[in-house]
């Protein structure tokens, strides 16, 4: 099975290196607002939740696309073909995690896992992002994270709503804690 990208919020410090790195790869400049990964900082609570695209097996964005611009690659990655995208924005409304967005031109963009070597993971110095072959623990963890779905609002609001859910359900322990905690 293909590797998947996972966030471990308990380990995230909110530094946003992943976000900056993503925008540098995708946009050629440091522009967090156009990154394909986001970090929801809740500084007052001292907690941060990265939002990543799960490359959903049953991808709402892909289903919502009227032009067939969104497809799944052979490696299981959900990708946007900018040439086919007509900028309708249906995918943005459809994604329950707020992980597909549009440029001012209307064209949709999303995480494509950097062709199998995600820059965000390489830049995370806290082990809060992992990109690995699934195992039982990670699959369970991913299933938990994917359970919460937010149907309405702007992508930013959806991500924040989910992040608050994650914080509320978090068992916050010192960093000595084990795998995926």
């Amino acid at each position: 099975m293909e590797k998947h990208l996972m966030a471990i919020p308990n380990r995230c410090t909110g530094c946003n290196r992943c976000v900056y790195a993503c925008s540098a790869v995708k946009e050629g400049m440091f522009m967090p607002s156009k990154a394909r990964i986001h970090v929801n900082n809740m500084s007052h609570e001292g907690y941060s939740v990265p939002s990543v695209c799960f490359q959903c097996p049953k991808a709402s964005c892909m289903e919502a696309c009227p032009t067939g611009a969104i497809s799944r690659s052979t490696r299981g990655v959900v990708v946007v073909d900018a040439k086919k995208c007509d900028g309708c924005g249906n995918c943005v409304s459809a994604c329950p995690y707020g992980m597909i967005e549009q440029y001012a031109s209307g064209t949709a963009y999303k995480c494509d896992l950097c062709g199998g070597a995600p820059a965000c993971v390489a830049e995370c110095h806290y082990g809060a992002l992992v990109f690995k072959e699934p195992d039982k623990t990670s699959l369970n963890c991913r299933k938990e994270q994917m359970k919460q779905r937010s149907k309405s609002g702007e992508p930013e609001e959806k991500r924040r709503a989910l992040a608050i859910e994650v914080l509320n359900g978090a068992e916050r322990v010192p960093r000595s804690a084990g795998y995926m905690r």
Binding site: T13, C15, N16, R17, Y20, R172, P174, R175
Partner: peptide, 22 residues
Amino acid sequence: ADIRIGDRACATCPLGCGNFTS
């Protein structure tokens, strides 16, 4: 360290010197 429940960092800092305690 005994009461730390997380580490905090400033923008793009890999050191994360902030101790969030409870």
